[in-house]
């Protein structure tokens, strides 16, 4: 995880220095604010990964390792789920409400709430609604 952390920190520091030079030189605050914000967006997660990399040491994917060293469960991957589709449709109706009128909210908002609730429940159960 060290390389990942360095990548983000390096990007953030570079953009931060660029932001400081740009801000002092141009005195244009919109661009300066965006550059500094971008720098923080790189440095913060980078420091988080650095902290983690020190805590957990090298993983099998961070060093020379055989497949056997990584054997076992990788992660839990959700199977097929209707909730991303339902949430996508809900978001779509909410955006259409911005254009065609608030009555679209009547469809969109319940759909979003229903889909988020369904997806959360699905995760907690560790399976989909059909109980597989």
């Amino acid at each position: 995880m060290k390389v990942e952390a360095r990548l983000l920190i390096w990007l953030g520091v570079f953009i931060g220095i660029m932001g400081i030079v740009y801000g002092i030189w141009s005195k244009e605050w919109g661009g300066t604010a965006m550059l500094i914000g971008t720098a923080i967006l790189g440095i913060f997660p980078g420091l988080y990964y650095r902290w983690w990399s020190k805590r957990m040491g090298d993983r099998p994917e961070d060093r020379d390792a055989t497949m056997a060293e990584g054997a076992g469960r990788i992660d839990t991957f959700p199977g097929s789920s209707i909730w991303p589709f339902a949430l996508g449709m809900g978001c779509w109706f909410l955006v259409l409400a911005l254009v065609f009128g608030t009555w679209f909210v009547v469809i969109g908002l319940p759909l979003v709430i229903f889909a988020v609730s369904g997806a959360t429940a699905e995760s907690r159960r560790g399976g989909d609604a059909s109980g597989h």
């Binding site: 055989t66 056997a68 469960r73 990788i74 992660d75 991957f77 959700p78 199977g79 560790g126 399976g127």
Partner: peptide, 22 residues
Amino acid sequence: VDTLQPTTEHAHDDGHDEHHGA
């Protein structure tokens, strides 16, 4: 050459068959 794959777990289908009916 060692050719092993770490196992993965499917949230609701141990058989790794995603579609199961759908």
